[in-house]
């Protein structure tokens, strides 16, 4: 390993929003999905983004992932390519589990032997070692979502098969909401384990308050139409999880009922 000459300051955030806005369409039919969003994720931090359906959570993640561009403000990205996990696993049905994990590496031009090794390592990380040869349709919903997570983590590596010195960032868009309760509970535990093992920063979108409180160090509540940051809670050091959950629930209900009028 060569030493980098100008070492990055250790406070550089993987992602920082500066008054970000996103409007779909123009004229009278336009929809303001996001407006004046300021948000910062620290290296290694687990942030849960909470909001009602349609408040712009997916839009926000898409902006960070580079799948869409803001119409106002600016997003400062200091991470390697963000890893993205969607609500559906969306595995490529013609590839095996290992083939899916290798896909981003293949597109980045990583040599075959290195790809193999990296995919095996990531499948091990999500506890699917030995199932690399299975096709997506031979896996359960929870297993597919774990393959999707391994594949997303593979996408952060560059052509040398290594993520470089930049902090890593994992974006997750309601990844467990299509799973049954037990599987979801287990995968939440797994995600926390993987987060601790990899030290990656996570921006996790959910509409489930309990999930947000269980997983996140910080919970950010987004309002609806336009999506703005309403309030934030530091839930990691909260003495009483149940009380915080109630408080956030109340705030969320208030945001939703403000749209009834």
């Amino acid at each position: 390993m060569t030493a980098t000459i100008d070492t990055l300051p250790d406070v550089l955030s993987p992602v920082r929003f500066h008054q970000v806005g996103k409007t779909f369409g123009t004229g009278r039919k336009s929809v303001v999905a996001l407006d004046g969003v300021d948000l910062e994720v620290e290296p290694g931090e687990f942030v849960c983004l909470l909001g009602a359906s349609g408040c712009g959570k997916t839009t926000l993640l898409n902006l960070v992932a580079g799948l869409d561009h803001p119409t106002a403000g600016r997003i400062e990205l200091n991470s390697s390519r963000p890893a993205v996990v969607f609500q559906e696993a969306a595995l490529m049905p013609w590839l095996t589990a290992a083939g899916n994990v290798e896909l981003p590496l293949r597109m980045a031009g990583v040599p075959k032997a290195q790809r193999r090794a990296k995919a095996a390592e990531l499948l091990e990380l999500v506890r699917l070692a030995g199932l690399g040869d299975k096709r997506p349709h031979e896996l359960s919903g929870g297993m597919r979502q774990r393959v999707a997570l391994a594949r997303a983590l593979a996408s952060t590596t560059d052509s040398t098969g290594d993520a470089g010195d930049k902090p890593s960032l994992l974006l997750m868009d309601e990844p467990f909401s299509a799973l049954d309760a037990i599987t979801r509970d287990v995968l939440q535990g797994e995600l926390l384990r993987i987060w601790r093992a990899t030290g990656t920063a996570i921006l996790f979108v959910t509409h489930d308050v309990r999930e947000a409180v269980r997983l996140g160090q910080r919970v950010v509540l987004l309002s609806s139409r336009p999506g703005r940051v309403v309030q934030q809670w530091d839930v990691e050091d909260a003495p009483d999880a149940a009380a915080v959950t109630d408080e956030i629930n109340t705030a969320l209900r208030k945001v939703i009922s403000s749209h009834a009028a």
Binding site: L67, R81, V84, F86, A90, M92, P104, M107, A108
Partner: peptide, 29 residues
């Protein structure tokens, strides 16, 4: 081809030709 697949491809770092070669063509097979 389900629209989610090319989107996933893009998130995984596929360029225009990578997207056609590795995602669109096999998906359309």
């Amino acid at each position: 081809v389900p629209p989610i697949l090319p989107r996933v491809g893009k998130a995984l770092g596929a360029g225009r030709f990578g997207g056609i070669r590795y995602i669109l063509l096999p998906a359309a097979l």
